[in-house]
Amino acid sequence: MSIFHNGGSAEEAQHFDMVTKKDMVLNPKDHLLHIENVRKVYAGRDGAKTVLDNVDLRVSAGEFVALVGPSGCGKSTLLRLILGSERPTSGALYLDGEPIGFPDPTRGIVYQKYGLFPNRTALENVLMPHKLKLSFSEWQKRKKELIGQAEHYLEIAQLIEHKDKYPKELSGGQQQRTAVMQQLINDPKVLLMDEPFGALDPGSRERMQVFLLNIWEKTGKTIFFVTHDLEEAVFLATRVVVLSQYYTDDRTDLKVRGSCIKCDIKTGTVGQAQSTKSKLDPKFTATIEHLRDVGFKPDHLHHVREFDLTHADSFHTVTPEEVNGLACDFPK
């Protein structure tokens, strides 16, 4: 916390607030995904626990956004809020200007596991969206055409020879490709991914990243990707959003005060940095260096500020103490 106290925190905080408030004037219809001042509190045995606070985020159509942060900072909670399987304590989420309700086909999800129906083959799994949405007679009528389409999707994912295998007979990477294809055939407005490659070995993980980038470039789908791997986030995303914890006592205006719980409250968007789409862009190398510094080396914090000012177009400024908190929590 020492950096925070030496670094003129009041101005930083003010600047932070200014940027946030200016952004809030935006109309929910201007962006595909609009998250406004979201706060999520869980009731626990030892009192209420604030997981997300003051989260503001806008995602435009076609963006590939990666959400990174240390374990337990509320990444998956934010994802569940967007998905609709949980509701925010306060604040609002909009998709295409419409408030987000319960899970529905406008938002697709790919989990780390449990994404596929274990009792159906790869082909049947990819066909599931049609089977669930069409009535029996319609399904019978369009069966041939839809199976052809599903097989085409499996071909893109190089899974056609495995189409009659059950999920447990597929490798981890094949399972995740099937899950992605299942979602693509469903054609959601935004595709949410919750650490989808977290359980894969480094080799298939890399292949999956390239696969996903290809898919994204071909389809132009909006992807919201949660990971705790900074490098993966930078490699994949057009925008990296960092979620960070901060400590209760440092912000005087917060509700939980004087408690001895250290990591009680976690905050929303701290820094959004522009990264590049692909490896070819010269900016890419610089970006990954800087983000490494954010995550792993608190000594290089001045880089972050420089970086923010020079490379990013629109962002919430990273305040030093937040970055410090992030650095402490990031496992090396």
Partner: peptide, 21 residues
Amino acid sequence: QELLVNARTLGATDLGLTYRV
């Protein structure tokens, strides 16, 4: 639960989720 949520995002109704999934 993830599987049920996934089925929801694929367009399953209450009855579809119960009897088809």
